[in-house]
Design a protein around this nucleic acid. Structure first.
Length: 879
RNA sequence: GCCCGCGUGGUGAAAUGGUAGACACUGGGGACUUAAAAUCCCUUGGCCGCAAGGCCGUGCCGGUUCAACUCCGGCCGCGGGCACCA
């Protein structure tokens, strides 16, 4: 009997696929197409288990769809611009370009042994000038189409390094390198006008039927459409030009609960007041810290009473103080609010802190007015009783109250109902080197002028240094010097580069014609778009996917994509992470020390997991049995390590498993089989070494089963029903695996394959039926374990490559059982079961059930109140 | 702080209103073996019981239903995102 040796068979079949050009995508109008895409990776240099899982999922779909007769496009590329390359250059020397291309080569070499059905001829990296040059062409067209603008934006400013920091570079309000307190500072930046599409991006979500509901919800909340009231307060004692203070509120029904007005520290009025040193000091205090919403919203709420007053719109005699407050965002609404502490927790906390009144506007229906200990914020759909209402009924829902308040304001001319969106324009300027240069020129006479398309790409210079902080492009001696594309006078290039989200917002379109001299080619985009199945991490649920949806619209508008591609991803699947338990010990100071799984010996004693460090043993551990090892370790009391529950694999916790080690020990098919089995793909999967071994054992069992069937005498006859049973089991396996793959329930498809393999290995059917069954098994396994499937296919007389064989079809007649087993519940608890013909009428089933001896015993003569028969499902007897 | 998820045996999970624990891992027992490894077979939610069988059980509390892991309300815990990480 031969041994299952993936190291031999895997390279062999990969070479065979290559020779056959099995995965080269060809535009074939006679066949339906299928475009499957996994989110392309950042080239960190090492693939990890998350990549293996992501690409295996895509590969299962790609191979399955190819078997179903589709012309499949399954490309791969590299999201290659970004900060890590610059950080590496700063920390270790070298150049971002060399670092990146080196990593791409390393990662590609690690991906190839997985046997993925990728069309590598379409590969590109976003840092290829060929790619980003086309991105610059897109930018120029978008600029001409009015989709891009320039305005001020707030950035994290490191006052010591004199540079802009990314949010992740701001740690506890301090710059990660300098340690200096970060400030918020305004800078003029380029923006994509994504907010022009707010309504469109929101309403089109309804059409994305094959997207997870949670992603659509997150995007809808992010876009944040709200209906509210905008009105102006008349100010008292405000500087000239600030006679009115515009505010926006989504709860105008709480207007009578106003106890103060508050403006953002970035509000023009706050700026006007900065001539007062006390205001200037307060505003400076507010600007400390980073720009992230998390940081701003969790910071302690502080305020400054400006001394200015505003008149309440419903009672000019009623004056409210105007505060500057750090939690008011200039980007949202008008940058000014009225505070209603009774019904907003932030306003409540603020009012408490500064001793402002907290009047309730409404109370729960049936309650009386009482002093509040926290803000009362019921759902807007809930009915409440207004004790300080001014519009609509005394008892009404919040929604009704809001509508009535807007109507009241409009009728009385002090405000109007407006719709606002939370979505802001997309700032794309980055003051960094390793990104796509923004293709514009600043000319003293012509102003900002786009570069001519024939001068593209505007290429990054290679001779840059990373010895100082700041943007190397900005301090390059010659690069920025150019001629104005309009007047020809000496002019300066834009030295900002683009956000890397731009690169990933259209790569899926570029894959349809990756070498074209234009961003896309109409015939290719027409044939291949849209992406039929997009697969990636839930962490991209909002930004990447929203930006791509915007870009698709922009590309339609500028003629680079057909109208049908406005929603570029027809179906989306978000997969979970790969996790691993963590091994931790403590050093002399009690600090955590983490250990790699490969340095730890882990086993179970009576279902109790224990782990020890593999250290300092003179004996060669590999020669000992597990029992001997247990004895040895327990006796020697090797350093025990604590097993910490699983978390996402990360370098800092050292809970990483290198896919290359797994492939070296067990082969790619085992790694692929394991990541697809057990856990549902949208959930996190726990990597366990025992699980990987079990996967390998199972594949070895399939291998020896194939061997055994191959050696069966040709004239072997099975048991009486052996052939019929095998045919039924085969049909069921085809049906279940097909449904599993179609519904992204790969774990269930694999469970069916386990069951089918068990049936097959215990079956006694005739030789031709057994051979047919194992060929079907090979076909069904091939999306998950393509190399093993080819080997079995070839051994059992399959024609051509398994990878190019059609998907098996189940005979529907074999899927139907003649009799069904019906559980019988008494008062909802299962007490008995009966077997009946599948189409027996309910009345007859009822009689049979009540006559069942277990049922009679349980009922013990009690009268039956009701009996429910769900055909083919269950019977419930109520007494 | 805000938005979105998730929570079922010792473990990964299955069941999406209808028999809770399919399929696996681990553990326990057995066969084979001089012995071990490998392989194969049986068993494996908890409690009570000699057994037949019974009771309990899907993070916690409450509700809807003939019937709830599944739907609704509230809480707890964990994870993802929050616009310059990708």
């Amino acid at each position: 009997m031969s041994r299952y040796d993936p190291a031999v068979i895997e390279p062999k079949w990969q070479a065979a696929w290559d020779r056959a050009g099995a995965f080269t995508a060809v535009r074939d109008p006679s066949r339906p197409k299928y475009y499957v895409l996994e989110m392309f990776p950042y080239p960190s240099g090492r693939i990890h288990m998350g990549h293996v899982r992501n690409y295996t999922m895509g590969d299962v779909v790609a191979r399955y769809k190819a078997a179903c007769g589709f012309s499949v496009l399954h490309p791969m590329g590299w999201d290659a611009f970004g900060m890590p390359a610059e950080n590496a250059a700063m920390e270790r020397g070298g150049h971002p370009r060399d670092w990146t291309y080196g990593n791409i080569a390393d990662m590609k070499a690690q991906m190839q042994p997985l046997g993925l059905s990728i069309d590598w001829s379409r590969e590109f990296a976003t840092c290829d000038p060929e790619y980003y040059g086309q991105q610059q062409a897109l930018f120029i067209d978008m600029l001409a189409a009015g989709l891009i603008t320039r305005k001020a934006a707030v950035v994290n400013w490191d006052p010591v390094d004199m540079t802009v920091l990314a949010n992740e570079q701001v740690i506890d309000g301090k710059g990660w390198r300098s340690g200096a307190a970060v400030e918020r500072r305004e800078l003029v930046q380029w923006f994509f006008k994504i907010s022009d599409y707010s309504e469109e991006l929101l309403s089109a979500l309804d059409g994305l039927k094959d997207w997870p509901e949670k992603v659509r919800l997150m995007q809808a909340n992010w876009i944040g459409k709200s209906r509210g009231l905008q009105f102006a307060f008349q100010t008292v004692a405000a500087p000239a030009g600030f006679e009115r203070l515009e505010v926006y509120t989504t709860r105008p029904d709480t207007l009578m609960g106003a106890s103060f007005a508050a403006i953002s520290p970035d509000h023009p009025l706050a700026k006007a007041l900065e001539t007062d040193p006390k205001v200037a000091a307060f505003v400076a205090e507010c600007r400390k810290g980073g720009t992230s919403a998390e940081e701003i919203e969790t910071a302690e709420k502080i305020g400054y009473d400006t001394g200015i007053r505003v008149r309440h719109p419903l009672d000019p005699a009623w004056e409210l103080p105007v505060w500057i407050a750090n939690f008011i965002l200039m980007d949202y609404g008008t940058g000014a609010i009225f505070g209603c502490p009774g019904h907003d927790q932030r306003d409540f906390d603020f009012a408490r802190k500064y001793g402002l009144p907290i009047p309730p506007v409404f109370v729960a229906e049936g309650s009386d007015e009482a002093a509040l200990t926290e803000a009362f914020v019921p759902m807007k759909s809930e009915k409440v009783r207004y004790v300080r209402g001014f519009a609509g009924n005394a008892v009404q829902t919040g929604d009704e109250g809001v509508a009535a308040a807007i109507a009241h304001a409009e009728a009385n001319g002090y405000g109007k109902g407006v719709t606002k969106f939370r979505l802001r324009d997309w700032g794309l300027s980055r003051q960094r080197y390793w990104g796509c240069p923004i293709p514009v020129v600043h000319c003293a006479t012509c102003g900002v002028v786009p570069e001519k398309k024939e001068n593209l790409p505007v290429e990054l210079p290679y001779d840059v240094s990373f010895d100082k902080p700041g943007n190397p492009l900005d301090r390059h001696p010659t690069w920025a010097a150019t001629a104005c594309p309009q007047c020809g006078a000496p002019a300066k290039r834009e030295t900002d580069t683009m956000d890397t989200f731009v690169d990933s917002s259209w790569y899926f379109a570029r894959f349809t014609a990756p070498r074209a001299a234009t961003p896309t080619v109409a015939e290719d985009a027409d044939y291949w778009m849209n992406v039929d199945q997009y697969i990636g991490g839930i962490e991209h649920a909002i930004l990447h996917l929203l930006y791509s949806r915007f870009f698709a619209r922009a590309m339609v508008k500028t003629g680079h994509l057909p109208q049908k591609a406005v929603e570029p991803f027809s179906a989306l699947f978000t997969q979970g992470m790969v996790t691993h338990e963590i091994y931790r010990s403590r050093d002399a100071q009690g600090r955590s020390v983490y250990h790699l799984p490969e340095d730890v010996l882990r086993f179970n004693i009576k279902n109790e997991a224990v782990a020890f460090l593999k250290v300092d043993h003179q004996t060669d551990l590999s020669e000992l049995s597990e029992n001997q090892l247990q004895d040895l370790l327990l006796e020697a009391a090797g350093t025990p390590v604590e097993i910490v529950p699983s978390a996402k694999m990360s370098k800092s916790k050292k809970n990483v498993v290198d896919p290359m080690n797994i492939i070296a020990s067990f082969g790619a098919d085992t790694a692929r089989w394991f990541v697809m089995s057990d856990s549902p793909p949208e959930r996190d999967v726990e990597w366990t070494s025992s699980g990987a071994e079990a996967a390998f054992k199972h594949l070895s069992r399939v291998w020896s089963l194939c061997d055994r069937i191959g050696q069966m005498p040709a004239d072997h006859k099975g048991d009486g029903d052996g052939d019929a049973d095998m045919a039924k089991a085969t049909a069921r396996a085809i049906d279940e695996v097909t449904k599993g793959i179609e519904s992204f329930a790969f774990n269930k498809a694999i469970a069916s394959l386990y069951a089918f393999t068990n049936t097959l290995s215990r079956a006694n059917a005739s030789t031709p039926v057994m051979k047919e069954a194992i060929r079907t098994l090979a076909r069904l396994m091939s999306p998950m374990t393509p190399h093993l499937a080819e080997e079995i296919w070839a051994a059992q007389g399959g024609r051509g490559l398994c990878a190019q064989a059609p998907w098996p079809k189940a005979d529907p007649a074999l899927l139907i059982d003649d009799t069904v087993t019906l559980p019988i519940q008494i008062n909802g608890k299962r007490r008995a079961e009966i077997s009946v013909p599948k189409d027996m009428p309910a009345t007859q089933v009822e009689k049979l059930a009540l006559a069942d001896e277990d049922v009679v015993r349980f009922l013990a003569g009690q009268p039956v109140k009701r009996i429910i028969v769900v055909p083919g499902r269950i019977i419930n007897v109520v007494v």
